[in-house]
Design a binder for these strands. Structure first.
Length: 289
DNA sequence: AGGCCTTTTCCTGGTT
DNA sequence: CAACCAGGAAAAGGCC
């Protein structure tokens, strides 16, 4: 049987980088309003009225992640702890500081920051994404589509609600960063970026109510119970993300059922299209203190 | 190269 | 009957 290529990306289930983030980042992350972070955050991050100079450490971290994602650079290839800085400190770094802190990737980071400082927008120089949706795509799909699609515009603007996972630290980075900038480790590593797991994709739709066109809704926000309103539409969107035009709710739901065993989801009996986040699902609570 | 992991695909059978 | 739900089985791909 010939099966369709799907361009699947996956992340080891066991990855966690909670212990790699500087304490200050985690503190910020824990205190952050998740809905703010996932919806308007990225656009605010790039906007003129939020100059890099004024970034918090957490925003620096966000920028770092998104820039790496844009360039398909493995996040583990740079020592994140060298960027435990706020925006002011970051803006004071010279080109040499960047290369010292991140090897060859430092040049890319320097370029990104320079663009943001002077243009208020990144990607003026080398991005191939056309038009007005560029920034939005970059921000919203930091690690999903660029690597496989030459033309990310296959996402129509209406589909550009945030499907992003970058705000969730425990899935985006895979392994401990090296303690010092090793030139070999710091080389640009062109491999497939971390994809988003299905449950994260679902979660991120839920966390963007204002931009989620009635696909999934919370049934019980505090308990993590949610319901699919447009099951096939969600499946189609998931399929698009995976470059798989034959995705259906039937198949998506099979993948969802595999999460029961791993306690990422809990079964909700007797209610059609209803699921509940389990103890191993992260990042969906309003406050995760 | 091979094993692990997360889906994807298909299927049988049951339920709403 | 259509749309779901439950899982088994096998395989696709990606990653290490």
């Amino acid at each position: 049987m010939v099966r369709q290529a799907s361009g699947v990306m996956s992340i080891p289930a066991t990855v966690s980088f909670d212990n790699q983030l500087p304490a200050s980042w985690m503190a910020h992350y824990n205190c952050a309003d998740v809905s703010m972070v996932t919806s308007g955050y990225t656009s605010r991050l790039w906007s003129q009225d939020h100059h890099p100079q004024n970034w918090t450490k957490y925003q620096v971290w966000e920028w770092l992640q998104q820039t790496l994602d844009m360039h398909q650079i493995d996040a583990t290839s740079i020592p994140f702890q060298n960027f435990d800085l706020d925006g002011r400190q970051l803006c004071n770094m010279s080109f040499q500081d960047f290369t010292r802190s991140a090897g060859s990737v430092g040049a890319i980071l320097f370029q990104s920051l320079t663009d943001l400082k002077w243009n208020g927008q990144y990607g003026q120089t080398d991005m191939v994404i056309p038009g007005d949706i560029k920034t939005e795509i970059d921000a919203d799909f930091p690690c999903s589509i660029l690597p496989f699609k030459e033309e990310p515009s296959f996402y129509s603007p209406s589909e550009l609600f945030d499907i992003k996972s970058s705000f969730q630290p425990n899935v985006t980075l895979a392994s401990p960063a090296p303690s010092s900038p090793d030139p070999k480790r710091s080389q640009v590593k062109r491999h497939n970026p971390r994809g988003t797991h299905l449950w994260e994709f679902i979660r991120d739709i839920l966390l963007n109510p204002e931009r989620n066109p009635g696909l999934i809704k919370w049934e019980d926000r505090s308990e993590g119970v949610f319901r699919f309103l447009k099951s096939e539409a969600v499946a189609q969107l998931w399929g698009k993300k995976k470059n798989n035009s034959s995705m259906t709710y039937e198949k998506l739901s099979r993948a969802m059922r595999y999460y029961y065993k791993r306690e990422i989801l809990e079964r909700v009996d007797g209610r059609r299209l209803v699921y509940k986040f389990g103890r191993n699902a992260r990042g969906w609570r309003e406050s995760e203190k």
